[in-house]
Design a protein around this nucleic acid. Structure first.
Lengths: 337, 337
DNA sequence: TCGACATAGGCAATCGTTTAAAATAAGTAA
DNA sequence: TTACTTATTTTAAACGATTGCCTATGTCGA
């Protein structure tokens, strides 16, 4: 492989010093215009490509932020990435992306990799199963700021940008109540995710507000498999007075629940309402779908998270005492069709 | 920000030279075991994080490959990334990802950025509108191998890994023919994409094989907007004998076409068959969908592309004369429900 | 006792770029 | 002519890690 052209090569050819060439290329005003022009011309002809590794090394700054998400296949995160990239780009920062695939071990490795690469900061949507936050504490200790987004850590004391899940759940539940439902089930997410409980709070607050009793039997936690949702629905529908509406932790769960009804109680399909959370691709092509869902603006969340991170990076370090940052992104209720 | 711990810090503390520390950490057998242990212990205690920028610089090798795709929101590419990452990981390579958002200008910038960062190779699904391949020629000239995937460049002479689009289209069309259809429309993709024509070839070959006449009026090109598909369908359905089945360039187009029928010709919905291309999320929740689609294994494509790239990177440069590599990933016909 | 040899570790150059400080050249005013 | 500016360019050190080669010390056999 041919070695690339370096500043030295250009300097030698033009009979000038390396520093002159370096300065000329970065448009340093102390270099005369004709010289700058000569240098740029040759650099162009010779197809000079600056060696970023060398620059990063010398400057001990990479202008790069690391972004860690569970899974790229989830468009929710893909959209958040776009938001973060936009903001980062506006500040001449690059973004490097890695997926944990929900594996905390892999996540640790990624953090390590990113620290070795000297990212200036980290944006993280942590994996579902993470319990031990020590990696991130260590990271913060090294002076690399970390902003969590989408998935807040269970422990607090960390900066985070998340949807206003409580209020979103409130709005979804309220919508169902206003539609006349009195018996509303909550198909809750995994107990290992704190968001499951945050949404439970919103659900309860809505019931409270409209003087409906809270009934623990109307809340069933599922993981994200279809089987789990089917099982939960089976138990729901066996109740003496089954719910007439469901608030689902996310739209995919709502779809599975609807699927269950399609198969087992097709007659009820038209009467039972669902409200879900999150995005729902192909919405317009679905014939049976939740009547409403809570849209999380993940693009905006990505933007906001990147903004907070960049602010933190450039902030004067207040030598401890900087308050923990929490930003909530409000959710929109979207009524379908 | 605290400066990170360096080899020098460790060396000073332990009263040894930097090189000893370096060698100890990389398990060099010329360093005695007790010394290695002492070094590792302190490195661990002090939370030493190697500076990759410095290593890359020194080694003039980054063990990183760049991956450029149009859009992360497209799960087709997200899956290809997973495949590529898997293979790269097996060879201790990292992958950096960037999106062109179908903008050739942005794509140029990304290539430049990646070259500056001295990636060892490039994996590219080029943007729809790219005409000028000079950036990639220049890249190849610098000795950085480029493998195209998913979207082959129109020009040839470039290494590429793509689905066997011709055969996929053949299989889809054949499926419709075997179902008894004699009048089959092809809702073709944008004329700017060479794949549109490759699939046309497969469509024609199937017609030929079953002695059906080819009729240019049964082929209409659309971009990916719903309006375009609606317009095409309108023209199709106005024909004296409209098609009784359609082969769609991709499933999303098929869904739009179905949507058109739902709205304008609901009576025909059951009689007209569709076959599409590519992935189709939420398949099981759709009540009206293509009867069959051609599954492209984008995961496998990502794997294969990464494999070819790594092979090319490590290959002895045969000083011109290396034949252009073309790998086709076969497609599966998937009958729905 | 001496040389040969193995073992463990140190020396020093190097990668490409940036940048503060010094050097040089070219005016300019006294 | 001299000293002082100002404009332009060079010098040289630094960033952190790697690695081929050299050195010091010890061991062993003859």
């Amino acid at each position: 492989m041919k070695r690339g052209v370096t500043l030295k090569d250009i300097a030698r050819k033009l009979n000038m010093s390396v520093s002159t060439v370096s300065k000329a290329l970065s448009n340093d005003p102390t270099i005369s215009l004709p010289t700058r022009a000569r240098v740029k011309k040759l650099a162009d002809e010779w197809n000079y490509i600056p060696n970023e590794a060398a620059r990063h090394f010398k400057l001990s700054r990479t202008s790069t932020i690391g972004l860690i998400i569970p899974d790229l296949m989830d468009q929710y995160y893909a959209l958040a990435i776009n938001g973060a990239e936009k903001v980062a780009g506006q500040h001449q920062y690059n973004v490097i992306i890695a997926q944990s695939h929900e594996d905390p071990g892999r996540e640790d490795e990624i953090v390590d990799l990113m620290l070795r690469n000297r990212v200036d900061g980290l944006l993280v949507a942590i994996s579902k199963k993470r319990e031990d936050m020590s990696v991130f504490k260590k990271t913060a200790y090294t002076g690399i700021p970390v902003i969590f987004f989408a998935r807040p850590p269970k422990e607090d004391g960390f900066d985070a940008v998340i949807s206003d899940n409580e209020h979103g759940a409130f709005k979804a539940t309220e919508f169902l109540i206003k539609k006349g439902h009195k018996q509303i089930g909550y198909i809750m997410g995994p107990e290992s995710m704190s968001v499951s409980y945050t949404r439970l709070d919103g659900y309860r607050r809505a019931l409270d507000k409209y003087k409906l009793p809270y009934n623990g039997a109307l809340v069933k936690s599922v993981d994200f498999t279809q089987e789990a949702t089917f099982a939960a629905m089976r138990r729901f529908m066996k109740m003496a007075t089954p719910p007439t509406a469901f608030f689902a932790f996310k739209n995919y769960i709502a779809l599975d629940a609807i699927e269950y009804l399609k198969r087992k109680h097709p007659a009820l399909l038209q009467q039972i309402d669902f409200a879900g959370f999150g995005n729902l691709p192909l919405l317009q092509y679905l014939d049976h779908k939740p009547v409403a869902s809570i849209e999380e603006s993940s693009y905006e969340m990505g933007e906001e998270a990147a903004r907070l991170l960049l602010r933190t990076i450039h902030e004067e370090i207040p030598e401890e005492g900087r308050p923990v940052q929490h930003i909530q992104i409000s959710c929109k209720l979207l009524v379908h069709k």
